[in-house]
Nucleic acid binder design. Structure first.
Length: 347
DNA sequence: CTTTATCCACGCTGAGGCCG
DNA sequence: CGGCCTCAGCGTGGATAAAG
């Protein structure tokens, strides 16, 4: 099978559907495998925090700020376990703690505390006397209050955040959950309310996005090609929206590369629009068929495989230079990038 | 120098508008 | 009416600026 980047633009236009199928055929979805990322908490570490919490409170019988603080300072990850018990995000916990204790805990402070512990569970926490230490104390006191209070009466069409199997009846339900376990159906119901791995997926969303960009960078580096990789929120002169790569540099763009991985067709549509925009930018004030620079798209994920119309647009905007992740190795030889190669192929 | 705050981009969701 | 599309919102991490 011929791929669109191997043939002339005329051939693509004459047989567009064939080339759409060619791209579709090698678009694979990688959603089954996720990177762990730097702040990943292994179960063994998490469990250690849980057991420490359970021990310090005598099996959740004595849940007081004092017993919780001693557990958290002994095994910092216990703070993350505590957060899972109440089921708040760090910013939510910060707000709740500020209201509850009168001690100012900013969203960023709570996020930093939580993340620092996850990044290095062995690192000692800021001492209780320090500003950070007082904030940790406030968070713990607030959690203590939340765990003890249970769910107040609610209107039928509302759902209280503490209305979870382990916290709906205060410490009684906490102890029951710890001692008897929680039924499978309850686990499944919690999954329904919070999709599996949601927190982790959020935390690694940027790593996912970088998969394609890293692959491109590796290929460019190996060929010894000068390139400019743009960072987030970076502005490039001459572009109202910065593409991911410019070769050789933004002052004299000859090849621009837009890279995107998406498992979601909504996101894919947005990116197609971006590439189309780059395509029209390359034609500004140029004679027909003679773009100022070559626009290349590198895509991955099943999001791009949803609608043929989007792929058609993408092929036209790039004049056929659409590469899926597994075709990135062909990137240099099948585009104008070959003119910038300074290291010959090692084959 | 370190810590904190601000801003941005990521993927995903859901609401609402438009079109045939 | 369903399909398509745009938009705004979420929580996250990282870059950068500001404050200590």
């Amino acid at each position: 099978m011929k791929f669109p980047f191997e043939v002339s633009f005329e051939e693509i236009q004459a047989d567009l559907d064939v080339y759409i199928d060619a791209i579709f055929s090698c678009l694979t979805s990688e959603f089954l495998v996720m990177p762990k990322g730097k702040g990943f908490v292994e179960f063994a570490v998490f469990e250690e925090g849980y057991e420490c919490l359970k021990r310090a409170t005598g099996g959740f019988c004595e849940v007081t700020p004092e017993t919780l603080v001693s557990a958290v300072y002994d095994t910092p990850i216990a703070l993350v376990v505590l957060r899972c018990m109440i089921g708040f995000t760090p910013p939510e916990w910060a707000y709740y703690a500020s209201r509850q204790t009168g001690i100012s805990v900013t969203q960023n402070a709570a996020r930093a505390v939580d993340r620092n512990i996850r990044m290095d569970p062995q690192a000692p926490l800021p001492k209780p006397g320090t500003v950070q230490g007082r904030r940790i104390g406030a968070l713990i006191s607030a959690a203590c209050h939340a765990l003890a209070s249970g769910v107040p009466r609610q209107a039928a069409d509302t759902l209280h955040r503490l209305d979870k199997a382990d916290t709906k009846a205060g410490l009684v339900s906490v102890r029951a959950s710890a001692n008897l376990g929680i039924p499978y159906s309850v686990l499944l119901y919690e999954r329904l309310l919070g999709r599996p791995f949601a927190g982790h997926r959020d935390s690694i969303s940027e790593l996912i996005g970088n998969v394609v960009e890293n692959a491109i960078e590796a290929v460019l580096t190996e060929a010894g090609i000068s390139f400019r990789r743009t960072g987030r929120a970076e502005r490039l002169a001459g572009f109202d929206q910065a593409p991911d790569f410019v070769v050789p540099n933004e002052f004299n763009p000859k090849v621009v590369i837009e890279a995107k991985l998406t498992e979601d067709d909504g996101t894919a549509r947005d990116k197609v629009t971006r590439v189309q925009h780059l395509g029209s930018l390359s034609m500004d004030g140029q004679p027909p068929g003679k773009p100022r620079f070559q626009v290349v798209a590198c895509i991955a994920g099943r999001g791009f495989g949803v609608r043929r119309e989007d792929m058609r647009k993408l092929l036209l905007a790039t004049r056929g230079k659409v590469f899926t992740l597994n075709k990135v190795p062909d990137l240099v030889d099948q585009t104008l990038l070959r003119d910038f190669r300074t290291v010959s192929p090692t084959r």
